[in-house]
Design a protein around this nucleic acid. Sequence first.
DNA 1: TTACTTTGTGTCAGAATAACGCAAAGTAAA
DNA 2: TTTACTTTGCGTTATTCTGACACAAAGTAA
Lengths: 229, 229
Amino acid sequence: MEKQFHQYQNPAVAIDLVVFGYTQKQLSVLLLNRKDAPYKNGWTLPGAFVQMDETFQDVCLRILNSKLGLSNLFLEQLYSFDRLDRDPRGRVISVSYYSLINPELFTLTAGTMANDVAWFGVDELPALGFDHSAILSTAIKRLKTKILYDPVGFELLDEEFTMTELHELYECILDSSIDRRNFRRKILDSNYIIATGKRREGLKNRHPELYCFNKDLKQNNFHLNITLS
Amino acid sequence: MEKQFHQYQNPAVAIDLVVFGYTQKQLSVLLLNRKDAPYKNGWTLPGAFVQMDETFQDVCLRILNSKLGLSNLFLEQLYSFDRLDRDPRGRVISVSYYSLINPELFTLTAGTMANDVAWFGVDELPALGFDHSAILSTAIKRLKTKILYDPVGFELLDEEFTMTELHELYECILDSSIDRRNFRRKILDSNYIIATGKRREGLKNRHPELYCFNKDLKQNNFHLNITLS
DNA sequence: TTACTTTGTGTCAGAATAACGCAAAGTAAA
DNA sequence: TTTACTTTGCGTTATTCTGACACAAAGTAA
């Protein structure tokens, strides 16, 4: 150990999570109402400090565990934030991750740190503590570009979904309208989404076809090149 | 200040830099020969610890300053690395950045921490200390995708360059051959690169046209969609 | 002068794409 | 069941984009 490890104090390192969900045709984010200062009773992204013996992934799972009944979910590093004054308590560097889940598969429970935990539509966000608005913007921007070249959207849907549901998801995230028929063709041409042969129950006669993510497909070009309008 | 800031020790945070250069038709990386343990006399990426009052950018410039006569250069955050055992001295989180420079515009000088500093072609790399091979792979992968949709390649060339030089740069970074005539068409169609009207001196008669980056152009789609072979 | 390489520009067939038509299936209400 | 309407699945077509390649003028080296 050299001087860095003792002589100087190190910045604290936190993980902040942007958990995306999709319900009622709306992209939502999981926020947490803080029980303690700073930003007491204010909304922030869920987060936690990185302890000496924890990897980023450890911390992510710890956060998710204390706020959700978690499962194996999509998790990707987003960006690291470093503004000196981003935390009023002192120097805290934030390494942010984002996650995609289907909210209907989980039940929310506020952990010990929070008064409440809730989904907010990305268009109806409250003011956020720390620099979490900047983190969230970065996450939304990343998601918008990511779904165009990487098949990650399915993480937000049921395992089986209709083409219309997938289409609405893309229109919602990209915040623009996409021609229904061209979208279908591009999605199916990619071979990443395949028909299950099944149709959803609960309607009168026949029902729209169900599709699912093609797990067998590893190496392929998924580049939607979607025309927005 | 709550318990995080005193009761627990925080991981150290370091910045590691991948400085790319391009000379003799080869993509190179700046490496540093360490004077002290760990990895004494071994090669690593240049790096430094983040002090309490420094932003990431501050640290990047500090590193570059002590190793190069630096100017305003392209600098972008790459990824944050967190393996518990990535530094034998103890827990160190690394936030990596990468930078693109034209090596001919700078002169290297080894700082106090290093025996030597040198350029290595990305195909002739020595073994690297810490997890720096992983950082470097991440940087190369990022660069390969980035030049396809963002006009950053010019950072590696002179302000004025021939179409052939740009073409060779792309073939070198992407490690594949690109049809010369289709490349030219796509580059010029993008309007990001324009002819200067000038021709390079020093040859017998007439010389190939010079081009430069179009600074006036802010919002445009630069998507090369290059066919590799 | 000759033989060769480099550079600038064009052509063209085939692929990809945006825009849009249409009919069958599903739904809701009388 | 009939009627009016919406949703879903599948085509068609004109246009643009792209890859592959030809060719000649300019530059270079003997």
